[in-house]
């Protein structure tokens, strides 16, 4: 067996795949949030940003394929490790109590699945425009390449159930990150207590910022602040 297949079969190797893909994904999530928050500057700002992205299909698809690869690697390692972990304790305890009751660590798997379902919904919602009748990405208007991201967001949250699903998914994403970002640093070998204290705080802050930042958009639309 080559060293690479040995590495990819080992539990630590699979955790490293999970951590490295997670690092890519959390980088994207932060950048995506910052880009989206331009909605608070105004319709023009968001639509210009969208036109800049849509006008560069080449780099856009490179980024998309990279992200799909990272999501694939993240899910692959999660499935492999979860199956092995379930097999590692075939007989459950009759009574189980925990020393550590933190919620974030208990919801890594279920939260990950909720976020996964959310990503599929979110792509159908705002990338494909599957759920909206009047959805239009971009168009050539009087010779100017114009995008309608702002209008799509306002229309997209017309149904409050959609907004609620977005908020729930972002809360789980935030919880996932408060444990995941810290755990990632441990897996990638930054176990030094110096880094550890910083990593715990950074993970908390990242989780909070993502949750608050991403929830602010559906909340603002549903509250009528953005229209």
């Amino acid at each position: 067996m080559s060293w690479l297949s040995r590495f990819l079969r080992s539990t630590i190797g699979q955790k490293i795949v999970m951590a490295a893909s997670g690092l890519m994904l959390v980088g994207f999530v932060l950048a995506h949030m910052v880009g989206n928050l331009q909605i608070f500057i105004g319709a023009d700002a968001l639509n210009t940003y969208a036109a800049m992205m849509q006008g560069n299909q080449g780099p856009l698809w490179v980024a998309r394929l990279g992200l799909l690869g990272a999501i694939g690697a993240h899910i692959w390692s999660a499935v492999k490790l979860t199956i092995a972990a379930k097999g590692a304790r075939p007989v459950a305890y009759k009574k189980r109590s925990w020393f550590d009751e933190r919620y974030a660590v208990r919801t890594m798997r279920v939260g990950g699945m909720i976020v996964g379902a959310f990503i599929v919904f979110h792509l159908l919602h705002f990338t494909v425009g599957y759920f909206e009748g009047g959805f239009q990405h971009c168009a050539d208007i009087n010779g100017v390449f114009t995008c309608f991201a702002y209008q799509n967001v306002i229309g997209g949250f017309a149904n409050p159930l959609v907004g609620v699903f977005y908020i729930v998914a972002q809360v789980f994403l935030g919880l996932h990150l408060t444990h995941g970002v810290w755990s990632m640093t441990r897996t990638l070998g930054f176990g030094n207590p110096r880094f550890d204290l910083i990593a715990r705080k950074v993970a908390m802050v990242v989780g909070l910022i993502i949750t608050i930042g991403n929830c602010s958009i559906p909340v603002a639309v549903m509250a009528g602040y953005l229209n």
Binding site: K15, G87, A88, W98, D100, V105, W182
Partner: peptide, 20 residues
């Protein structure tokens, strides 16, 4: 690590229950 994996132990999720 190879031996540990071949004994069918699970992976570490950094829950920290073990150290407690």
């Amino acid at each position: 690590v190879s031996q540990m994996d071949s004994e069918d132990f699970g992976h570490c999720g950094n829950f920290g229950e073990c150290t407690l």
